[in-house]
């Protein structure tokens, strides 16, 4: 079973990974975006890490709702409301339980991903974070490791796609040939989840 501490470690691991990869995310965002994805997410997850240290919610749902709210408040770009909605809706779906199962998490995360699709209007194939998140959620029924692989493959598979959402969509065919920064950061979030699960299970 997964407790609040597991979810806090997942968020901390994501913050560390985003910090490590911030320059790469911003570099991916330069040709097709406005070159702020790494710095925006870095600011957001740093704020998530500190609010979780300060408030320490005692349920998995509480951790994700607080983290999501913090991202919406601090990121300043579209990734704030999108990742914020992902975490908050996943957290709300987990409810007040003190511990949740892998299956509960998989089902809640699917609710969160559907909320992101409703908010931003993106579907698979639009060259967005959805292209990493949907395959990850599908694979999460098998294992955390499978979800990580699926998210990473999904992110890589955005390279030949033409963007249909967000600023990159204005570039039309010129968006082809670049890996989507949002799908790349989504894969970091899923990888951090898999890492956290591996550490806690030895």
């Amino acid at each position: 079973m997964l407790d609040a501490d597991f979810f806090r470690r997942w968020m901390t691991a994501t913050a560390a990974s985003v910090e490590r990869e911030a320059d790469r995310l911003t570099a991916l965002d330069s040709p097709i975006g406005d070159a702020d994805h790494g710095s925006n997410l870095h600011r957001g997850f740093t704020a998530v890490r500190s609010v979780l240290e300060k408030e320490a919610p005692d349920t998995p749902g509480g951790v994700l709702v607080l983290a999501g709210r913090q991202l919406i408040s601090t990121v300043g770009g579209a990734s704030g409301p999108l990742y914020g909605t992902l975490l908050r809706r996943t957290g709300k779906a987990l409810g007040d339980a003190a511990e949740v199962s892998d299956t509960d998490l998989a089902s809640a995360l699917r609710t969160g991903v559907e909320a992101v699709m409703a908010l931003g209007g993106a579907a698979p194939g639009d060259k967005t974070m959805i292209d990493a998140l949907v395959p990850a959620v599908d694979a999460l029924d098998r294992s955390f490791a499978a979800a990580r692989t699926a998210a990473e493959e999904g992110a890589l598979a955005t390279t030949p796609l033409q963007a249909r959402k967000g600023r990159a969509s204005y570039l039309g065919e010129r968006s082809i040939g670049h890996q989507d920064p949002g799908a790349t950061s989504a894969a970091l979030l899923v990888a951090a989840l898999a890492d956290t699960a591996e550490v806690s299970r030895g």
């Binding site: 919406i72 300043g76 579209a78 990734s79 409301p81 909605t85 908010l119 931003g120």
Partner: peptide
């Protein structure tokens, strides 16, 4: 556009 729309929608959903 973009994050302005999404942020307001996310705040309303809250």
């Amino acid at each position: 556009l973009g994050s302005a729309v999404l942020t307001v929608k996310a705040l309303l959903a809250e």
